[in-house]
Computed example of a mutant assay.
Amino acid sequence: MPTQCYSAKDRAAREAATRELFERRERSTGETERQELLEAIVELNIEIARGIAQRFRHKGPDTEDLEQVAYLGLVKAVHGYRLAADTPFIGYAIPTIRGEVKRYFRDCAWTVRIPRRLQELQGLIAAKLPELEQELGREPSTAEIAERLGAEPAEIDQAVAAHGCFSVLSLDRPEAEAGLTLGEMVADEDDPTLHQLETIDMLQPVLSDLSADDRRILELRFVDGLSQTDIGTEIGVSQMQVSRLLRKILDHLKDRLAPLASAA
C-alpha cells in the first residue's frame, strides 16, 4: 500500500488498509504484534503528518522540527483512535496532528507574547478539539468549543486568532519581485490606517451592544456601501426612516465612544 495518495481512490484505499490494521490489532493478543501493527499504521499514514507540517512552513521553526512534531501528533492519534467511534481515522488524525503542531508553536515558538490565558486556551483547544470532532462527526462551532472548555466564545476566537504571533521577519530579508529588502519597502512615515485600527478596537465592544437590526443597517451602509434608498428597499422601510435610524445609531455610538476616547 503506497503511503503517498494522489487521488480520492488512493486515500480511500489507505483508509481501508488503516482500518484493517486497527482491526487486526484489536484481535491480537501478542504485545509484540500489537506494537508492530501500530508502527505499520504510522508508516502508512506518515504522509498525512508531513502534509500538515508543510502547511506551517515559513512561520519560524525549521521544517524538519515541524515534521517531527507532526509525526509525534500522528503517533498520538494512532494510540488514541478507537474503532468503536465509527469515525474514519483520517478524520481523527488530522485535528490531532494539527493540534500537536499548534501546541508546539504555543509552547516553543513565540516571538510575540500573548496573554497567558489565551496561550492556555490554545492548549486546551488543541487537546479537546479532536475529541469533540470525533463525537460530533464534524468540525465544532466556536460556541460548542467554548461550552466544552467553560470559556466565552470571544475568548476562543481570540485564542484562535492569536496563532499568527510566532515569527518576525528580518528587515534585511530580500523581496525578489521588487529587488528591495523588506526594510526598504516599509514606509518611513506614519500610516493613517493605524489610527483606524485603534478606532476599530474601540468600536468592537460598543457594536456588540447594538441590536441585530442596527448592526445590519450599519453593515449595509458602511461595509456594502449601499445608499439610504437601497437600504430602505433591503429592509422594507422608507429612505427617510433609514436616515433617522442611521442618525440615532451613530449618535448612540458617539455617546458610548466619548468616555472611551477620553480615557485613551
Rank of each mutant, 00 (worst) to 15 (best):
His195Gln: 07
Ile48Asn: 04
Met240Ser: 15
Ala8Ser: 15
Glu31Ile: 10
Lys9Pro: 02
Val69Glu: 04
Leu44Cys: 09
His79Phe: 06
Leu72Ser: 07
Val223Leu: 12
Asp251Arg: 14
Gly225Asn: 04
Gly150Met: 01
Gly51Glu: 14
Ser238Asn: 08
Ala8Pro: 05
Ala12Gln: 12
Ile46Ala: 15
Arg98Pro: 07
Leu44Ala: 12
Leu218Asp: 04
Pro153Asn: 01
Ala40Glu: 15
Leu180Phe: 12
Ile231Asp: 07
Asp213His: 07
Gln158Arg: 07
Ala264Trp: 08
His195Ser: 14
His195Lys: 13
Ala109Pro: 05
Lys248Asp: 13
Ile231Val: 10
Gly51Met: 11
Asp107Cys: 01
Arg256Gly: 02
Met240Gln: 10
Ala162Lys: 05
Glu198Asn: 02
Val69Ala: 03
Asp201Cys: 08
Leu246Val: 15
Leu250Trp: 01
Pro115Ala: 11
Ser141Asn: 01
Asp209Ile: 03
Gly91Ser: 13
Ile114Gly: 04
Ala258Ser: 09
Gly51Pro: 01
Gln119Ser: 05
Glu147Ile: 00
Phe22Ser: 13
Leu257Met: 13
Phe166Ile: 05
Ala127Leu: 02
Arg247Phe: 06
Gln4Phe: 13
Gly137Leu: 01
Cys5Met: 15
Glu139Trp: 04
Phe89Asp: 09
Arg11Asn: 12
Leu194Asp: 06
Lys254Ser: 07
Thr181Ile: 03
Phe166Trp: 13
Lys59Arg: 12
Ile156Phe: 02
Ala143Arg: 03
Gln239Cys: 06
Tyr104Asp: 05
Ala187Ile: 07
Glu139Tyr: 08
Ala40Met: 09
His195Thr: 12
Cys5Thr: 11
